[in-house]
Computed example of a mutant assay.
Amino acid sequence: MSAIDVLIRLSTIRVLPVVVIDDAAQAVPLAHALVAGGVPCAEVTLRTPAAVDAMRAMAGVPDFVVGCGTAVTADQVEASVEAGARFVVSPGFDESVADRCRALGMPHVPGVATATEVMRARAAGFTVQKFFPAAPLGGAAAIAALAGPFPDLRFVPSGGVGLAEAASYRLDAVHSVSTSWVTPRDAIADGRFELVVDRARAFREQVVA
């Protein structure tokens, strides 16, 4: 898939599970659980030593789109893409990260928190941006407000988004909804993948209009 195709696929799925994984051996069964729940994608955050190996394992699961999350350096982008990541998400906007993603042809979703940051990322060519941390910044109401002056952009709300808030993000300005609620870290560690299947289904039902 091209970079544009990846972003279109993610927007169709509408849910972007945020995964913190401690054991790469859990990566493939987790990916299969997400597929079974109708959410064949994941953003694996670079918060544990197992993250890159987990991406590599998930990249081998058919019809699954794995990406790198919490990318804050160009070297992290390089390692993640080499492992099979198909997209890169960052908590903020950094020129070196953006440049490396461009050089590698990787779709990049930089983080923004203010209108000024939105404008800066937009000027750099990013029309899909991560709105982070979504809940403390006003959630769906804040995205609706930003959609006024920036009708050409789409946002990925992330941070404090659980099942109770999911339906509020059924907005045209929302590209997909990022959440860790679907993939609890302890459930992954304990191998409780049936919980992930159920949560993936429940969350997607709330965000798909």
Score class of each variant (00 low, 15 high):
2 S>H: 13
3 A>I: 10
4 I>W: 01
4 I>Y: 04
5 D>F: 03
6 V>D: 03
6 V>N: 08
8 I>L: 11
10 L>G: 02
15 V>C: 08
16 L>T: 06
16 L>F: 11
18 V>Q: 05
23 D>I: 09
25 A>R: 15
26 Q>V: 02
28 V>Q: 10
29 P>R: 01
29 P>F: 01
32 H>K: 14
35 V>R: 15
38 G>C: 04
39 V>M: 04
42 A>S: 07
43 E>K: 00
46 L>R: 12
46 L>Q: 10
48 T>W: 10
50 A>F: 04
53 D>A: 15
54 A>W: 06
54 A>Y: 03
56 R>A: 14
60 G>N: 06
62 P>I: 01
65 V>A: 10
68 C>Q: 13
68 C>S: 14
72 V>F: 10
73 T>V: 06
74 A>W: 02
75 D>G: 12
76 Q>Y: 06
77 V>E: 01
80 S>N: 11
82 E>F: 04
84 G>Q: 04
86 R>S: 13
86 R>M: 13
87 F>M: 07
87 F>T: 10
88 V>P: 05
88 V>I: 15
90 S>A: 14
93 F>N: 10
94 D>W: 12
97 V>R: 06
97 V>N: 07
101 C>P: 12
103 A>W: 01
103 A>H: 11
105 G>L: 10
107 P>R: 12
109 V>M: 12
110 P>A: 11
111 G>Q: 12
112 V>S: 08
112 V>G: 08
112 V>T: 11
113 A>R: 13
114 T>K: 13
115 A>L: 11
116 T>Y: 07
117 E>V: 07
119 M>G: 08
119 M>W: 02
119 M>K: 12
120 R>I: 06
123 A>R: 15
125 G>Q: 08
126 F>G: 05
127 T>K: 14
127 T>H: 14
127 T>P: 01
128 V>K: 03
129 Q>V: 09
129 Q>Y: 07
131 F>M: 08
132 F>Q: 09
133 P>G: 10
133 P>Y: 10
134 A>Y: 09
134 A>F: 11
138 G>E: 03
141 A>D: 11
142 A>L: 14
143 I>Y: 07
144 A>M: 13
145 A>I: 05
148 G>Y: 12
148 G>V: 14
149 P>H: 12
151 P>Y: 11
151 P>Q: 09
154 R>E: 02
156 V>C: 15
157 P>Y: 02
157 P>S: 06
160 G>D: 02
162 G>Q: 05
163 L>P: 00
164 A>I: 05
165 E>A: 15
168 S>P: 02
169 Y>C: 07
170 R>M: 00
172 D>P: 13
172 D>N: 14
173 A>W: 06
175 H>K: 01
176 S>I: 03
179 T>Q: 03
180 S>Y: 09
183 T>V: 14
185 R>S: 09
185 R>N: 03
189 A>I: 08
190 D>G: 03
190 D>P: 01
195 L>D: 12
196 V>G: 00
197 V>D: 00
198 D>K: 00
199 R>K: 12
200 A>I: 02
200 A>G: 04
202 A>W: 00
204 R>N: 01
204 R>G: 00
207 V>A: 00
